[in-house]
Design a protein around this nucleic acid. Structure first.
Lengths: 219, 219
DNA sequence: CCTTCTGTGTTGCATATATCACAAAGATAT
DNA sequence: ATATCTTTGTGATATATGCAACACAGAAGG
């Protein structure tokens, strides 16, 4: 349950009053849970719940682990991040898909079909919520598009540069900070870490980028 | 302008009457246009319009062309397909992004911010439309997720198998048909065509798949 | 009919990338 | 402080992948 102050910051409950918020929680059979770092938030392999999760506070990550145990970061989920079976990955049967807590999190679970169904009460707050949800889904689609943009590049060099340009654009500056470690970055662009390090060194030597730890500058 | 019959099939205007539909078009300053094969539907490089396009009928494709002129299929857009600057690709400055007509198309262009803004009339049809739009965006997110799932695999072999499993699951059968040519498939999984053909041959030889033209069977 | 184009199938060769292995620096916990 | 991690950095080697080139079939179009 969010406090009144937290509610105002919530991307999902924007423009919704505290009273409306409370009645909506009931209406949608919503459940809010808190997690600590490294907690398992959600496991797609257990087919029990078809709920949708929305990150209200903190950070989480969607991880895929394939048959050989290789882990890949599929998505980074900040506040407003949405995840759920219905809107992700058929999940090639063999591998497991999990949402893992990065920093202490509040996550709201909602029965998604309930949102898409027309409310018999035709309640006004419902439609505001749907509108907010649409905003979140647009953001998600955009984030995924950018990911595809990076992954569809044909070499490590191009992948790195593409991702750097995205970060630089987001930061509004030539200098920016990686949201995760270099090891995770290799994972994110779906290549071998050592190969990526080599390419990174080359980029530095050629004067294309400058880097210090996780801080980078495009030249 | 859709006919009454077409309207019922439209994914965006589901549960909306013909009268409501007509008043919505005005309300959203929507414009419907028709295209023929190979027509350029939308170009992201021209920053004039921030509209969102929805494919009502026919098929289109979102194509990226990078500095060196290499084209990559970013998305296949069928009926219900959504595209627009706000919900895709920052587009690494250098390369151009276009939506191209595949089969004769009807496309509806809507001013997107207008949808996300709250309607001062609080009209009921508006909220139904938002709900339908949410459904479309969910579908889009799901499609993009699956694409990421494929692209994040580390070898051509794994990419192919992952994609095949998706198609097989979608078809509900071990046998399925590719939605496009083998050449385009290479493009879709972001690898070299000849390298893909080689891997495909190996898969056939090892008895992992059977294939005849665009028809495949997983064994 | 011939021409032109796109899709398919295959090969030799160069090289980018993965694999494995090791070492040092920082982080975290005991 | 010590031990145990993870992260970063680098190199030698094997291999997967990209590239260029060619041949053939079928479709589309004049």
């Amino acid at each position: 349950m969010l406090s009144q102050q937290e509610l105002e910051k919530s991307p999902l409950f924007q423009d919704i009053s505290y009273e409306e918020y409370r009645s909506l929680l009931t209406c949608f059979q919503a459940v809010q849970k808190s997690f600590r770092s490294d907690d398992l938030i959600y496991d797609f392999s257990s087919p029990k719940n078809d709920a949708v999760g929305i990150v209200e506070r903190g950070c989480a990550a969607l991880i895929r682990i394939d048959e050989e145990g290789v882990a890949t970061v599929m998505e980074e989920l900040g506040p407003g991040g949405v995840f759920g079976r219905t809107l992700a990955f058929a999940g090639s049967s063999g591998d497991s898909l999990q949402v893992v807590c990065r920093t202490p999190c509040d996550v709201l679970f909602i029965d998604y079909p309930h949102i898409l169904k027309r409310c018999e009460h035709a309640c006004n707050r419902h439609s505001v919520l749907v509108q907010n949800m649409l905003r979140l889904m647009s953001d998600k689609a955009q984030a995924l598009s950018q990911r595809v943009d990076v992954l569809s590049r044909r070499s490590i060099r191009e992948k790195l540069l593409c991702y750097f340009r995205q970060l630089s654009e987001r930061a509004g500056s030539n200098t920016f900070t990686l949201p995760f470690s270099l090891s995770t970055l290799a994972d994110y662009i779906a290549t071998d870490r050592s190969a990526m390090m080599r390419e990174l060194k080359r980029l530095r030597e050629e004067g294309v980028v400058r880097s210090d730890g996780r801080q980078f500058t495009l030249l």
